[in-house]
Design a protein around this nucleic acid. Structure first.
Lengths: 208, 208
DNA sequence: TAGATTGTTAATCGATTAACAATC
DNA sequence: TAGATTGTTAATCGATTAACAATC
């Protein structure tokens, strides 16, 4: 269902309206704002049970709470981050985990010069202690910020300790290895190449 | 066309096969590897003119070059990065720009403690000199790693100097402001919330 | 009540899959 | 030639849009 992919964006816009103190919105107004069709907005919200009111529109507060609930942002997942290089550091310090349904419980790396450092209140641990850590701490989700080569070994440890949910920043396509996992990929280079395509495609069209 | 979104992934897999020295592959084999259907693989490649050979399959080398060409990775775009916080730093040091059709020519920030520092061979410049820089240096693309609040002002400067291509890491939806731009969004928190949804959805299904 | 706007069904559009003739 | 595998057309599936009756 492709409505799922749109939910976080709805949540972003609705949260902003809520912060501005706005109380109601119609599908038409929201659609204009988000560059969607009113029809799609209504169709989308109706997937999860109609929470609008005919003749009035949607209550921003209710919409906010409903989407929060649908996304499950209230049920906190515990995550560990593997790889405290530039990307891992950026993720650890930049992402608002608690607002997105997660808590970051530990960070691991194999670089002696990084181990022991404090990153946004969390000490970086030696990745060789990962298995030991997972035995005594309940973790549902792993964030992979390690180089492609390291993925098979590290993910094997994670998988063997029951971790089935991954937020993957490596170039490795982990779905290939296990088929009972939830894999959310952030392939930055794919995104950049898509941008490249779109730029070149536009340039070519302008020539003709 | 949703085939575009799949092209970078094809490129990733084909590049790896090429590196391994493999010379040919059939749509069936590639499909299994990438968890697609053989039909889709053939359909996708045929969008850009059939470069397979009946009874044989596809030449890895040719496929690699064709996709590279379709993506336009050979025509280098010049980009500037705005915002040298954790995320900006990670992007600047972590992303292989030249391999993805770009060259990073400058980095800007407004933090005096960061300005002047060297990040992967590029000096961080004062964002107040951005306008001046753009007058004398040809730039086609901007990478936005700045907080949401700063986006309207900075993007106005970029837009007014003719920049129409954006790689956006901020929470701001820039399409709303300008409609003649190419916008490639990397909304990390959207991705994380989608993961949250999928985890909770799976958990609920397992209960029943 | 009249006006507005939803919820929902039907129509359209696009993307994926299946099938098979063409051909290397 | 026989076998393999593509290119391509047709069938299916899913997602988006349009239309309108229901109702606040």
């Amino acid at each position: 269902m492709s409505v799922i992919r749109r939910l976080p964006r709805y949540y972003r816009f609705i949260s902003e309206l809520k912060n501005k103190g706005i109380k109601r919105i119609s599908s038409k107004e929201l659609a204009e704002m988000m560059k969607l069709t009113a029809s799609q907005v209504r169709q989308d919200f109706n997937c999860f049970g109609g929470f609008g009111q005919q003749g009035y529109g949607y209550s921003i507060d209710q919409l906010h709470d409903e989407i929060e609930n649908i996304l499950g942002l209230d049920k906190i997942q515990t995550a560990v981050l593997i790889g405290a290089g530039n990307m891992g550091m950026a993720i650890a310090t930049h992402v608002k985990f608690t607002k997105r349904g997660f808590t970051l419980s530990a960070i691991f790396d194999n670089d002696k010069s990084i181990i022991g450092k404090n990153v946004s209140g969390i000490e970086v641990l030696d990745v060789s202690t990962l298995s030991y850590y997972l035995k005594s701490n309940p973790v549902s989700t792993a964030i992979l910020c390690i180089p492609q080569e390291a993925v098979p070994e590290v993910s094997q440890v994670l998988y063997s300790h029951g971790i089935r949910n991954f937020w993957n920043f490596s170039h490795y396509d982990l779905e290939i290895l296990y088929d009972d996992i939830i894999m959310e990929n952030v392939h930055l280079s794919d995104s950049l190449m898509t941008l490249c395509y779109r730029i070149n495609d536009k340039n070519e069209k302008q020539k003709n």
